[in-house]
Design a protein around this nucleic acid. Structure first.
Lengths: 201, 201
DNA sequence: TTAGTCATTGACTTTTAGTCAATAAAATGG
DNA sequence: CCATTTTATTGACTAAAAGTCAATGACTAA
């Protein structure tokens, strides 16, 4: 990377971290693009070099902390399905907490409409990673934890559905419960029931 | 009701039905307030006699078809929990279909933020009716279908959570599956598992 | 050295949500 | 039946901010 590319990368990073801070403080609707650019010491136009719409920056924020989960799950190769999923859920909710309720709200508002997801971000690497979830389930079939004929796609969708439901409820409650407690208590209990018909024995 | 009140009620109704039609056709963001008022043969200002914000009309649309469910469930007094809930779920999804994906999207965008729900609409009578759901569960305890110590509030929340998850997934998929099929197949299967620990025997 | 690239700028355009003083029609009360 | 008040309606107007774009100049590459 040359000077220019590094500087451009830094500008984008600055915009993203500044936006996260401001949105957490005041909410997405209460700040405008100039608030973000001024606080980042760049001009308004610069914002639109990196993001097509004001909302697009939220989608990038939600991807920020996603780097390490894949490696973590890979390291758990010998753990059983339950432990892997627990980890996956836990990390999902950690990211939800990291982003905060205001970012989560704006994120939901955008992902419920496929037209509002820019193509370069359409790899399903959000709070969750759909492919990774399917890999976890495939491993469980290989290890004979789950029956051979388990429909992975369906099961993965059910889980994602649960996670979204939780997120929406969390936003509606205005953050009245702790996301991490919620996963550990409520969602773990649900997991048993969801998987029960698919377990071997 | 006098002449004036009747005329006012008609104006409001006209705005709501016109908005539903236009939003279904073009999406909420693609129409402006004047599109709605022109198609309703009233002036722009009239809109704001009935709705504080452009978005508020969506919240009222989502309440339109809600009249009869309470009566229907009351008539099912002798049916078991399962049948009542099935009916409740089915009606939920009927309303989702009636409103269409564009209205649902805009509805989600608003209810995830309590500050955006006008006080006069804050009685939880949306697609679902939280109090009605709790009543169904209470009846099941009285009939000894569910254990005495069942935590109704928690169970009701779990169910609402499922319904929201489904709605969000439906919006994300851009309507690729039929909501009614979805409830009947997927959600019914889930019900068993959710309730399993609470059933007597 | 120089031609070309591209990140950056900020004034400008455009769009539209929401306001409000004026109007007219209906209700109220004597 | 008339005078007064109330309120639904109007549409021109304001305010706010999202998004555009031609100009700039620092950096790259040959």
């Amino acid at each position: 990377m040359n000077k220019r590319q590094i500087s451009a990368q830094n500008t984008k990073k600055k915009l993203i971290t500044t936006a996260l801070k401001l949105i957490k403080e005041k909410g997405f609707d209460s700040i405008n693009v100039e608030d973000i650019t001024k606080a980042s010491n760049v001009a308004k136009g610069t914002f639109y070099t990196y993001f097509k719409r004001k909302e697009d920056i939220v989608l990038e924020i939600s991807r920020m902390p996603f780097n390490d989960i894949k490696d973590e799950i890979a390291l758990m190769k010998n753990a059983n399905l339950y432990k892997k999923l627990k980890h996956y859920f836990h990390r999902f909710m950690e990211q939800v907490e990291f982003c905060g309720i205001q970012v989560c709200r704006e994120w939901i508002k955008n992902v419920i409409d496929p037209n509002k997801v820019p193509e370069n971000l359409d790899d399903k690497k959000w709070f969750y990673d759909f492919e990774m979830l399917k890999n976890i389930l495939e491993d469980a079939i290989k290890n004979k934890e789950l029956k051979k004929d388990t429909k992975i796609e369906l099961l993965a969708h059910i889980i994602i559905c649960e996670l979204y439901g939780m997120m929406v409820c969390w936003c509606m409650s205005d953050g009245k419960f702790e996301p991490l407690d919620w996963t550990d208590k409520f969602c773990e209990a649900q997991l048993d029931k969801i998987f029960e018909p698919y377990f071997n024995k």
